[in-house]
């Protein structure tokens, strides 16, 4: 039977409270859901970024499972080494348990600087799950743009100013790029739909070989939004089809959620400080282009999933 909330609620929580992430941050939910999706022991790797620095301030740790942080760009390579050790020691009869391996990385550590390491680990076929928590910028270093930052967003390296409207480029569609790796399981999920997220994580753990999950993870600080808005903004991201929920299982594309009432990008963006400048007179054209691009991407996804 597929995971449900009732079952999830019974699972031990593998990260403790009292970590130092901001109130209302998205990624603690991501950790809880992902690690709750398997009952096997898990070993976790994590890239440098908000997740790592807020959960492991020595001599404290929020992690109740074995955890390794190596550097910013090598979460995937590091866990690929851990998994290789496991394969070797298991073959030699020195380890007998069934263990699962997860590598976490932020969008910076995944889309940008860790992209090669991720691609290599996925291509080599390690039995591991890579989870990107995408908060759309380098939050740990103070909200700089990444290739996951949405077009028009204000960041500290793409500040909205007198002649610039924020980031000029559209975000990179990393999930599709990962699907092109031909690995057994790739999915996009969000903290707005916890059951969907947990089920995708469960599938990712259960496939034989690498799996990639891209999870939408709100950042109240970087997005300039209220601390209690994570769920609503994530829901808006999927309802506007900016962040569609879908999965690619053995090459077969499936849309997991089709909003009954698709909301406009204006409706979604209006709620976030990072897009506020787009609503000044003169930026209407940019907003129209953003809407058109999201619509086109959504149509493309629906076609792929036909």
């Amino acid at each position: 039977m597929a995971l449900n909330l009732k079952e999830l609620a019974k699972r031990p929580v593998r990260i403790s409270g009292g970590h130092r992430a901001c109130a209302g941050c998205g990624f603690p939910i991501v950790i809880k859901m992902i690690l709750g999706a398997t009952e096997d022991p898990v070993v976790v790797g994590c890239a440098t970024g908000c997740m790592e620095v807020t959960t492991t301030v020595f001599p404290y740790t929020a992690w109740k499972v074995p955890f390794i942080h190596n550097a910013f760009e090598n979460s995937a390579a590091t866990i690929s080494g851990v998994e290789a050790a496991y394969q070797s020691l298991k073959r030699q009869g020195k380890v007998d348990k069934e263990i699962k391996f997860v590598a976490f990385g932020g969008d910076g550590g995944t889309y940008d600087i860790g992209f090669q390491s991720l691609s290599g680990a996925m291509e080599r076929g390690h039995n591991m799950v890579y989870v990107c928590y995408d908060n759309g910028a380098y939050m740990n270093t103070g909200i700089q743009r990444s290739s996951a930052t949405p077009r028009g967003s204000h960041t500290t390296t793409t500040p909205a100013g007198k002649v610039r409207y924020g980031k000029k480029e559209y975000r990179k569609d990393l999930t599709t790029i990962m699907a092109a790796h031909g690995i057994p399981y790739v999915a996009q999920a969000s903290v707005s739909n916890l059951v969907d997220l947990a089920r995708k994580a469960e599938k990712a753990f259960n496939v034989d070989g690498p799996a990639f999950l891209n999870v939408f993870s709100p950042c109240r600080l970087g997005w300039n939004v209220p601390a209690d808005s994570a769920r609503d903004i994530s829901k808006g991201a999927t309802d506007s089809c900016f962040w569609p929920l879908f999965e690619v299982e053995n090459g077969v594309w499936k849309v997991s959620y089709k909003p009954r009432n698709k909301i406009s990008m204006d409706d979604w963006m209006e709620s976030q400080g990072r897009f506020r400048h787009l609503f000044k007179p003169g930026n209407e054209g940019i907003r129209e282009e953003i809407q058109a691009q999201v619509d086109q991407q959504w149509e493309l996804l629906l076609k792929r999933a036909e």
Partner: peptide, 25 residues
């Protein structure tokens, strides 16, 4: 009986080696 990991760069070679050495290998 070695598990050989043909990584995609030396950065990943050292990164993976750190991961495996920390895992009792």
């Amino acid at each position: 009986n070695t598990e050989y990991v043909p990584v995609e760069s030396e950065h990943s070679a050292m990164s993976a080696t750190v991961g495996s050495a920390a895992s009792g290998a």
